[in-house]
Design a binder for these strands. Sequence first.
DNA 1: GGGATATATTTAACACGTTAAATAGAAAAA
DNA 2: TTTTTCTATTTAACGTGTTAAATATATCCC
Lengths: 142, 142
Amino acid sequence: MLPYRQSLAGTLLAAREAVMAPIRPMLNEAGVTEQQWRVLRVLDGTGPMDLKSLAASALLFGPSLSRIIKDLADRGLVLRKDNPKDGRGSIVSVTVAGRALIQGTARRTMRQLDGYALKFGDERLKKLISELQAFTGTIRED
Amino acid sequence: MLPYRQSLAGTLLAAREAVMAPIRPMLNEAGVTEQQWRVLRVLDGTGPMDLKSLAASALLFGPSLSRIIKDLADRGLVLRKDNPKDGRGSIVSVTVAGRALIQGTARRTMRQLDGYALKFGDERLKKLISELQAFTGTIRED
DNA sequence: GGGATATATTTAACACGTTAAATAGAAAAA
DNA sequence: TTTTTCTATTTAACGTGTTAAATATATCCC
């Protein structure tokens, strides 16, 4: 068995940790967790959506999202409405306040990400990302 | 700003989730969490070590490791001793029972991982992992 | 239509992630 | 040596990860 840090899972976790470590304090200052940030970003990019799709897009489990939406709605960063098509579910969207938070914070996180691309090479990084996506698509069980 | 799922962080998280999803139930059946498994694997591969090095190698924060070691020690899977070189810290090692659990479970997880290599291509996967490691090494701040 | 089944969401329970602060011992400096 | 400073670990607090079970509504089958 390979040493953990050289394993596939270990390598992925280490990469993710290296990427996020400098970004977490930025989100912290903005008053959102990494997961809340994911939710806001997905909603901002996709528009109003139901919780199940949102969970899938933000890579969150249902129970986590349930808590997160409650919190973000209480803080006025997202708006939750009944789903007219399905009495069980609801539809969530970003508020103006939410969008403002996103805009202000994205500037800083993007600068950090640009730094990564600069250090590693823009094309090389794009290739790495697309290989990762190909890998994920290949092994995912449907 | 890129859609979250195409971003660097999103791609890494999605890949990790795809890799771990089938493995988690195996660990679950073995009675260990993903993080406990990481600790056991690192200890098994490296031998007795202090908590700080262990945390770094298993990609865990100190407080998490503190809880995990207490639990694993209570269950007899690891052994904790005072560090003769440093009165503040301690040294941890895997027990025979811990090693047995590792052996039994590794067989299943490795079969799963072999499946990934088969689907994606062994050489292609090795290249992807080494690119990831290069990336992590490049952006890590020291 | 009415009951069986499936799906969306929430609740519960327990472990970890994450930051900050507390504790205690080691190391360095005065 | 003693005061200061650093370092290893733990505790605390709160949010999330993860699985299982509960709840409520939709959908399907008869």
